[in-house]
């Protein structure tokens, strides 16, 4: 009897496990605290990067931070709705360069590494954000 019960419990557990959805990208980035930390470190890295720091002079960093956290959440899960302007609108008229785009990507990679985000999770986020290149650069 105990043996049968064991099998029953095991089967139920396995069924439960196979029924569980694999975590989405947002969760694999560490959920809210994970993405908060990545964006925080990205901003720290930007502040130490002479290639892009001038572009952030006069920018409301708190607004940039919450907007980016929300944007990453919205592209990596269906848990958030990004309420800011589109990437085209945000970047239009600034003539952001290929150099600056690469600098931000490098700073983001560094931020994710500091948070020990696994390579494949980094790749997935970068593949989504890379699509914004044409909306951002030389606009």
């Amino acid at each position: 009897m105990r043996y049968i019960l064991c099998i029953f419990v095991l089967t139920a557990l396995l069924g439960c496990a196979s029924g569980t959805q694999s975590p989405n990208l947002y969760q694999r980035l560490g959920g809210e605290p994970g993405v908060d930390a990545i964006v925080y470190h990205l901003i720290v890295n930007i502040s130490q990067d002479e290639r892009v720091i001038e572009r952030f002079r006069g920018v409301d960093i708190e607004r940039f931070r919450t907007g980016l956290v929300q944007y990453i959440c919205s592209v990596s899960s269906d848990e958030c709705q990004y309420q800011g302007d589109s990437m085209q609108v945000v970047h239009a008229g600034h003539d952001y360069t290929d150099t600056e785009f690469n600098a931000i990507v490098e700073n983001l990679m560094k931020a994710m590494e500091s948070q020990k985000v696994p390579t494949r999770v980094q790749n997935e986020l970068l593949s989504i954000l890379a699509k914004d290149y044409d909306s951002i650069v030389y606009r």
Partner: peptide
């Protein structure tokens, strides 16, 4: 380079 294009690897 296909980012994440091979089982999550670039």
């Amino acid at each position: 380079v296909y980012l994440g294009g091979f089982f999550g690897y670039n």
